[in-house]
Design a protein around this nucleic acid. Sequence first.
DNA 1: ATGAAGTATCTGTACTATACAGCTATATGG
DNA 2: CCATATAGCTGTATAGTACAGATACTTCAT
Lengths: 151, 151
Amino acid sequence: MDDDAALGQIETEVALLMRLGEATRRATPVAAHRSLDRAAYVILRHLQDAGPQNVSALAARLNLDGSTVTRQVSAMQRDGLVTREPDPHDGRGAVIRATRAGLNRVDAVRAARTALYGEILADWSPGDRRALAMLMRRLNESLDAHTRRTR
Amino acid sequence: MDDDAALGQIETEVALLMRLGEATRRATPVAAHRSLDRAAYVILRHLQDAGPQNVSALAARLNLDGSTVTRQVSAMQRDGLVTREPDPHDGRGAVIRATRAGLNRVDAVRAARTALYGEILADWSPGDRRALAMLMRRLNESLDAHTRRTR
DNA sequence: ATGAAGTATCTGTACTATACAGCTATATGG
DNA sequence: CCATATAGCTGTATAGTACAGATACTTCAT
């Protein structure tokens, strides 16, 4: 495989993965997998990792429009996964904080998804799994850097 | 990194890639990249690789609902990218065939996307690119096999 | 201190991609 | 030749997202 073929194939595989990833998520029968949609899951993950923060910070970090985050956060608040408190330092904004229930939920979903990937990759060697994890992390870093650069 | 951590990270990276892939596609300024939406692109790619076929075959192969493919194909027909002929062997169905224009379009989009990935992965070694392409192909195979198995 | 410009958020609206259910027309196996 | 299955289309619903506009607050230069 020459270098251009590798690029072409990466392009193809990313497109395919986006389709299959959706299909996999939908086809997963266990409720826990689906109890958080894609955006809610990444929002909670980010709150878990980076602590309470406002809507704009989330939007910028996740490459989402502010209005999208507003709505997602509203839904999550309705479901008791996050709280919204006025920001003491900025009267315009609010601080979004994951609740205990939200953290529990995200842990449960993550555990379920990890188990799912254990099934999917059952016949992979540990070394290949690690290699995939590492290369995908780098791919996302490169994609993110490119998106931010060209904007 | 132990094995469970690798699975967890793969799960995270897939979720992130689905978000970033969308953002990248949207943020891409060149018209050619966006002149085919995700489904139209994979449909044309598949017609290109596997030849003319009916709606059901496409839906099964691409893990899409038949109605989705119907609509996508209608839009593509309107745009002159595919033709729909009655199937001589089955009066219920129709055969979808990529037109010359459709093939040109898919080639242009693929070239543009390949170039884009060339930019995104500019600082990657050829070996890493090949490794990523290979592992993602295997990931998609595993995902697809799992989706079909558990259905 | 104050008005202009910037920023954070929310709301209204619209679009894309998708699924599911129901319909019609055709095919096929007893 | 009927009963059931299949291919495709249409109606309807949902999720996820963006963009534009409105509002409220902040910041900064004068």
